[in-house]
């Protein structure tokens, strides 16, 4: 028995590199298998029907555009999150930061943009979205820096606060009275609407910028030092609170822009928070982790998740399978990433 296990160990050890590349693929396949089994057991959806539902998404331009559209509100926050997580700051509040940016930016669009030239309007919208998202992220940063309050809960709680503020505004002061019982705001003016490709280019630019920031600047280095050891960072004079505030301002701001892209690219109007985002801010966390905190890789992981989100919506429209069921698949992917870290370490030891 001992000989068998040592043979197995040697076999695994020599194929270490190959394994570390195929593991994510295997993990995805396993997750997919489990998910499709669940669908079959609950709704009688067999693999054929499942693959069918992808056809539209995969093989039409419209399908690709849809996925890309959904990618944007995942990608922007995810890019910011790679920075936050690198620092070891658990920003679970991307959803709230996203909503607040969406609110502020769309507000500028709906109420101010008419009287302004397009460029100015767009610029103001984005500034509003960024700063509101950033502000929303600053409170947890300050509380952690000054009072050592755990940021997981504070960022999380603010998500719900943001949702209630958002809903209040949309139902109340910004509600469009001519909408016959539908709860929504007046539509965004045409000039403030953006094409999905432009949105994507913008997001990709931000991803590249954050990549450079992380790996080639002094600030990025300090972020990594803080992330690896709070004590050492302190001992060499890096201020945790200053770093946290800068990082969270960026992370929140980027999430805010991501939120704005929902109304300018996708919906063109504000509705209740639950209908604006199926949890993009949370999906962004998954995207960041799948990309192993590499901002450039988040472009790929976000697109993948955007595609999956679209599949989920399709499943609902075509087969009456609830869209949120796709979260099972997403969660398992995240789990795969969590598991792969210690497993990789064990592999290295072989």
């Amino acid at each position: 028995m001992r000989e068998l296990s040592s043979i197995a160990r040697k076999a695994v050890g020599s194929h270490r590199k190959a394994l570390s590349y195929t593991m994510p693929v295997i993990a995805t396949l396993i997750a997919f298998l489990i998910y499709s089994t669940l669908l079959y057991m609950s709704y009688g959806i067999d693999i054929g029907k499942l693959l069918n539902s992808w056809k539209d998404t995969l093989f039409t331009v419209g399908g690709w555009k849809r996925s890309l559209t959904r990618t944007l509100p995942i990608l922007m926050p995810a890019v910011g999150l790679t920075l936050a997580f690198r620092m070891g700051f658990w920003n679970i509040g991307a959803e709230g930061q996203l909503l607040m940016g969406l609110l502020a930016g769309s507000g500028v669009a709906i109420f101010l943009a008419e009287r302004l030239p397009q460029a100015v309007a767009l610029l103001l919208m984005f500034i509003a979205a960024f700063s509101t998202g950033a502000l929303w992220a600053l409170l947890p940063a300050y509380l952690r820096g000054r009072l050592n309050v755990n940021e997981v809960l504070t960022t999380l709680m603010l998500n719900y606060v943001a949702a209630s503020v958002f809903d209040f505004v949309v139902r109340g002061p910004w509600r469009d009275p001519s909408a016959y019982g539908f709860i929504k705001s007046p539509p965004l003016p045409e000039k403030t609407r953006l094409d999905v490709l432009i949105g994507f280019s913008l997001a990709a630019l931000f991803a590249a910028a954050v990549y450079i920031l992380q790996n080639y600047t002094v600030f990025g280095f300090e972020v990594r030092v803080v992330g690896s050891s709070y004590e050492v960072a302190r001992a060499i004079g890096i201020s945790y609170i200053k770093t946290a505030i800068k990082v969270m301002a960026m992370s929140g701001g980027l999430a805010g822009i991501g939120g704005l892209l929902i109304s300018t690219v996708m919906t063109g109007v504000l509705m209740e928070s639950a209908r604006m985002t199926p949890g993009y801010g949370y999906t962004a966390i998954i995207a960041a982790w799948l990309a192993r905190l590499n901002p450039v890789a988040t472009v790929l992981s976000s697109f993948f998740l955007g595609f999956i989100t679209d599949v989920g919506v399709l499943l609902e429209t075509v087969y009456r399978v609830p869209a949120s069921s796709i979260m099972v698949f997403e969660g398992m992917l995240l789990l795969a990433v969590v598991v792969s870290e210690p497993l990789e370490k064990k592999l290295k030891a072989l």
Binding site: R224, V225, G227, S228, S229, E231, V232, A233, A235
Partner: peptide, 8 residues
């Protein structure tokens, strides 16, 4: 704890 940063 304080002299070197693990992870770097």
């Amino acid at each position: 704890e304080r002299g070197v940063a693990r992870g770097l």
